[in-house]
Design a protein around this nucleic acid. Structure first.
Lengths: 185, 185
DNA sequence: GTCTATAGAGTGATAGAC
DNA sequence: GTCTATCACTCTATAGAC
């Protein structure tokens, strides 16, 4: 019954949802095993480092997705405003209009921060840097671009927290619109 | 050896720090027992409902602190701007200038959201309502007051996430200053 | 004797590693 | 699937205050 269904890359999105729903500690191997349909043996074959390996791989995958759909457009768009527009669209889609939580943000708040400090920090550092760069090219001064970038990235995270807390995804989309409007030069 | 040291109310702040540091799932009874210096017997005497009871009591205590130092001043200050000023001061102190995380926000992002949904939601609902009320009395229109209140509360949460992620507490204080400035009528 | 606060051995269940 | 460690929790025992 070998090599029929799964590849490591097929498992990562499922793993991501499990960690999002249950958190790192709450995602037990039995929950993971059930969600992925893989036995513990297969899981340890794909992720020799166990649960920590799984979470780190999920963070890597998230980072790659944002690099491709958010950070790169911010840096590389000829027209910075279109890169910024792409960012807001990608973010709205990725977080399912506020119904989905940011795993990196959740890891930052929990004790998982220390365990995955480098990946957590890198994700947010690259995001704010890329956005600040785009805002600079859009005509803002360096300190304004820096402040706006910080406010926007943290505003997105805060809206995800508040939306989840209030059980109202609209909070997220409303906030996204206002954050975008504040960037008008 | 009875009735010498501890009262329930003495234990709550310690419990709060334990949950902040380790999260709900990560705060095992042995960690809690060690941190509080209380055996399981005492813990279950004070909190018959076990760990869930402990966390709910901590949330209640946090709520009471904010009610006293944040929500009430927002609602009751003769001069709304002084209530708002008091809020920013209390928030900076409570979150230790960004070195301390918001337990309610962390619970909102994790699977604990469902378990403590009412308390999590109530905390944020009362905060945004009280702030919106103060902003209204400060001269903003109702929709602007509502939007500003939402942006401010979520901005505070986001700054805590970003600051923790970047391991840079200054992010929080910078953001607090900017959030305050945006409220100028 | 009764009540409250305490400690901690002992429970079955379940965790993650392999 | 097997392993050991640890989980949340229960229960018994006991100290002192009334």
């Amino acid at each position: 019954m070998a090599r029929l269904i799964a590849e490591r890359s097929d498992v990562l999105p499922v793993l991501g949802e499990v960690f999002r729903e249950h958190g790192y500690e709450g995602a037990s191997l039995s929950v993971i095993s059930k969600a992925t349909g893989l036995g513990k043996g297969s899981l340890y074959h794909f992720f020799p480092g166990g649960k920590e390996d799984m979470a780190a791989s999920v963070l890597d995958e998230i980072d790659a997705w944002f690099e491709c759909h958010v950070f790169a457009p911010l840096r590389d768009s000829a027209e910075p405003s279109s890169g910024i527009g792409a960012m807001f669209e990608a973010v709205a889609a990725y977080f399912a209009q506020g119904r989905r939580v940011c795993l990196v943000g959740a890891f930052a708040l929990a004790d998982t921060r220390d365990r995955f400090a480098g990946q957590v920090r890198g994700y947010f550092a690259r995001w704010t840097d890329a956005l600040s760069d785009a805002l600079l090219r859009a005509g803002h001064t360096a300190p304004v671009a820096q402040a706006l970038a910080e406010d926007t990235v943290s505003g997105i995270q805060g809206a995800l927290v508040l939306g989840r807390a209030m059980q109202d995804p609209d909070v997220f989309m409303r906030t996204l619109v206002r954050l975008h409007e504040r960037m008008a030069p």
